[in-house]
């Protein structure tokens, strides 16, 4: 492992020196690989250098595409969007350097600001933080308001339109097309259950009321907390332009619902009401249901991306699909 670590450290040093030639005497310390996140390798480190005679010290993290990922996404988009969001009120990491084609790091990588704090998937229902109810309610509203702020972000003015296609009112159909294509890239194993779900989705694709910046994987598990305060939203790999209700469908889908609710105090209807107040967007229950089903299809595709990585000997864990997601989708579309 130490040889591997030294190899990565050398590559990282060359990468940063190339991106930031003003850094003199760059030293990388404390580099290590940490667990967490299925779609990217995470390598935190501290960097020190001298710039115009002044010492600089930064806490950074290098996020690199793994050999076998569960997501097919483009680091250039993630980097560009995070740059565009810099200076907004949306809590996101400052990105420093991009190795888009893996020229330095072997695989596409981003170096960005590192945050301390707690990653607590189930903070709202208690989790490891065990915050009091009023703090959890405040945090639940804060998550919702962050999502609302993201959806109200003026992406056109920030130049995001140069990075991402605007699907317009056909965002739902574009999303189905994109994820169906991704699904069949992962497997040539016939999946009639998923064909049935795709037909159901195509019959019900709603028209978007607006095009917004969609996070794509918004959840407490993709954030860091400082006590009861939200510090930063992470994992912007699936950010795209689309229908605002897509993110609402993601956070209220049955598989994610537990992460976003405080039983008896903050239910999906509370989240939706607060979101509606903050954004002014209409939230049609039929549209939310459509996006709930879509969220599960997307999760199934992500799972099959992992299965493909495993079958090709590129994964570090034995991914398999036991059909439980398809079964859930069948229940949701009234076919089971």
């Amino acid at each position: 492992m130490s040889d591997e670590l030294e190899r990565i450290r050398g590559k990282l040093q060359a990468f940063i020196e190339d991106c930031h030639p003003a850094a003199e005497g760059l030293e990388i310390q404390g580099l290590r690989r940490v667990t967490g996140g299925l779609s990217r390798e995470n390598w935190p480190f501290d960097a020190r250098w001298s710039e115009s005679g002044r010492p600089v010290q930064r806490e950074l993290i290098m996020r690199r595409d793994p050999v076998g990922s569960v997501l097919e996404t483009d680091r250039r988009i993630e980097f560009g969007v995070l740059r565009a969001l810099g200076g907004s009120r949306i809590p996101c990491p400052r990105v420093d350097w991009l190795d888009a084609d893996g020229r330095f790091m072997d695989r596409p990588s981003i170096v960005m600001q590192r945050f301390g704090g707690t990653n607590d998937h189930f903070v709202l229902e208690g989790g490891i933080s065990q915050l009091p109810l009023d703090a959890r309610l405040s945090l639940a509203r804060r998550y919702c308001e962050t999502l609302a702020e993201l959806h109200l972000f003026d992406w056109r003015a920030a130049g995001v339109g140069d990075l991402l296609p605007d699907p317009g009112r056909d965002a739902a159909r574009a999303a189905i097309d994109e994820w169906e294509a991704s699904l069949w890239r992962q497997t040539d194993d016939p999946r009639p259950e998923l064909v049935e779900v795709l037909c159901w989705l195509r019959d019900r694709a709603p028209e978007s009321q607006a095009t917004v910046l969609v996070h794509g994987d918004f959840k407490p598990g993709n954030s860091l907390l400082d006590g009861a305060e939200l510090q930063v939203m992470l994992d912007w790999e699936t950010v795209h332009l689309g229908d605002p209700i897509e993110d609402i469908g993601w956070v209220t889908n049955p598989l994610r619902r537990r992460e976003h609710r405080i039983p008896g105090h903050w239910e999906p209807e509370d989240l939706i009401a607060h979101y509606r107040d903050r954004t002014g967007f209409e939230v049609d229950p039929a549209e939310v249901h459509f996006w709930n089903v879509f969220a599960c299809l997307k999760l199934n595709t992500i799972l099959l991306t992992g299965v493909r990585s495993f079958r090709e000997g590129r994964a570090d864990r034995p991914w398999s699909d036991d059909g439980s997601l398809a079964r859930l989708m069948f229940q949701m579309i009234g076919a089971a």
Partner: peptide, 13 residues
């Protein structure tokens, strides 16, 4: 077909 697929999914589980 839907009913049959639903039954096969239940059996897989």
């Amino acid at each position: 077909i839907r009913n049959l697929l639903a039954a096969t999914l239940r059996r897989r589980a």
